[in-house]
Amino acid sequence: MFSLSVRRGAPEIAAREPFDGKSLWLPAAFLCFLIIPFGWIGVFAPAIWLGLVAMESAQGWKKATSFFITGLLMLLVNSGLIPGNEHILLMEPYRDPSANLIYPSFRPAKSVIALTVVLFMLVRPQPLKRKDLPWIAVMVAAPIALGGMVLDFHPKLTATIALAALLNFVVVCIAEEGFFRWVLQRGLGLWLKRLPWIATALVTLLFVSLHTGWAASPTMLALVGVAGFGYALLWQLRGSFWACVLAHWGVNLLHMTLLAYPG
C-alpha cells in the first residue's frame, strides 16, 4: 500500500495508491461527528484531516502551504480561543504529600487532534521497527535520570494515576507528537534538507516555550528541554512517529509514577 523512506531527517511517504474519494472523504465525514461531543472544536477535525492529506498529496509550494496551514489549525484549536476547551475531569485528582496534583483529565482540543492523527495513521500506517527500541530507551532514560537527581523520589501508582497515564498516552502524547514531529519538524526538515539540526533546535525551543505554563520553575523547564530535544533528535535519527510517541509517553509515565509530579 505504501513505503516509508527517510531522507536527511525528513520521512517521505511513497504511496502506491493516492488518496482516492473513499479514503479521502469517508474519514473526513466520520470526523464531522466529533462536533457532537466536542462542539465548535470538533468542527476543526475534518479540516485538520484534509490538511494532513494535502501534506502527502501536494507538491511544491502547495505542499509547503499544507504543512503551514495544518500546523496553524492545530495551534488555533489548542490555543484556547475556541470555546469549549476546558479540562474534562474523569476522577478526583491524586494529591501527594507535597500537594502536587495529578489530574486524570483531558482537553477536547488535544482529543480532536489526537483522534484525527490516529485516523490518518490507520489509513497511512507508520512502522515502528525493532531498531527504534534502543533509541526510545535512551531518550526516556536521559531526562528521567536527570530528573531523579533534582526531583524528589516518590514512587506511586493508584487507579487515578493509571487513568491519567492512559489519557496522557492516547491524547497528550499523540496530539503533541502529531504537531511537533509529523507536521512541524517534518515540514521544517523538507525545507531545511541540508540543515536538519536547525529544525531539531527550532522545534525543541518551541516545545519548551509551549510548556512554560506547566513547567513553571527553571529546573522543570530545563528537564522539559532535555526531554523535548530527545524527542526531536529521535525524529531526526529514526523518522518514526510512533517511536517519538512512545518516548514521550515513557518520560511522562516514569515522571508521573516515580518522581514528584510535576515537580
Rank of each mutant, 00 (worst) to 15 (best):
P11G: 06
L81P: 04
S66T: 00
F67R: 13
G80W: 12
N100F: 12
F68R: 03
G60R: 02
R8V: 10
R16D: 15
E92G: 05
K110V: 00
F19K: 04
G51W: 00
P11F: 05
R95Q: 08
T70G: 03
N78P: 02
W40E: 06
I102A: 01
P11R: 09
G60P: 01
D96T: 12
R8Y: 15
A64T: 13
E12L: 14
A99S: 13
L34Y: 04
L50D: 01
N85S: 13
V77M: 11
S57K: 01
A15S: 10
I102Y: 02
W40L: 11
V77P: 02
Y103L: 12
T65H: 06
L101E: 10
N85T: 11
E12I: 13
F30I: 11
I82Y: 05
L89Y: 04
A99P: 12
S79D: 14
G21S: 12
A114D: 10
G42R: 03
A114S: 12
R16K: 13
G84Q: 15
K62V: 11
P46M: 12
L90W: 10
W49Q: 01
R8S: 15
E17L: 08
P104A: 11
K110C: 00
A45K: 15
K22M: 14
F38I: 10
V53N: 12
T70A: 01
Q59V: 11
L90Y: 14
V6R: 10
G9Y: 04
F68E: 04
G51H: 02
D96C: 09
W40Q: 14
C32Y: 03
N78V: 01
L34E: 02
F106K: 08
C32D: 05
N85L: 13
I113Q: 14
I13H: 03
G42C: 04
A29N: 04
R8K: 15
E92W: 05
L31I: 03
A47M: 12
D20E: 07
D20R: 07
L31S: 06
P83G: 14
D96K: 06
A114H: 10
R16H: 12
P108L: 05
L31T: 03
M91C: 01
Q59L: 15
P37F: 15
A99K: 14
A15V: 01
G9A: 01
A64L: 11
P104E: 13
V43K: 07
G84Y: 14
N85C: 11
L89S: 07
V112G: 06
P108W: 11
D96V: 07
I69L: 05
E86T: 08
V112T: 06
A15Q: 14
Y103D: 13
A99M: 09
F19I: 13
I48S: 00
I82A: 06
F106I: 04
H87W: 07
A14W: 10
R7G: 02
I69D: 00
F33Y: 05
A28G: 04
I82C: 03
F106N: 05
F30A: 14
M74L: 09
P18T: 06
R8G: 10
N78I: 01
P18M: 06
G39Y: 12
S79T: 08
G60Q: 04
A54R: 02
E92Q: 09
S23Y: 01
S98Y: 08
A29R: 05
T70N: 04
P46K: 07
E86I: 04
W49D: 01
A28P: 00
P83E: 06
P27H: 09
V112S: 11
N85A: 13
L34G: 04
F38K: 09
G39V: 09
S66H: 02
A54G: 05
L75D: 03
C32S: 11
R95G: 02
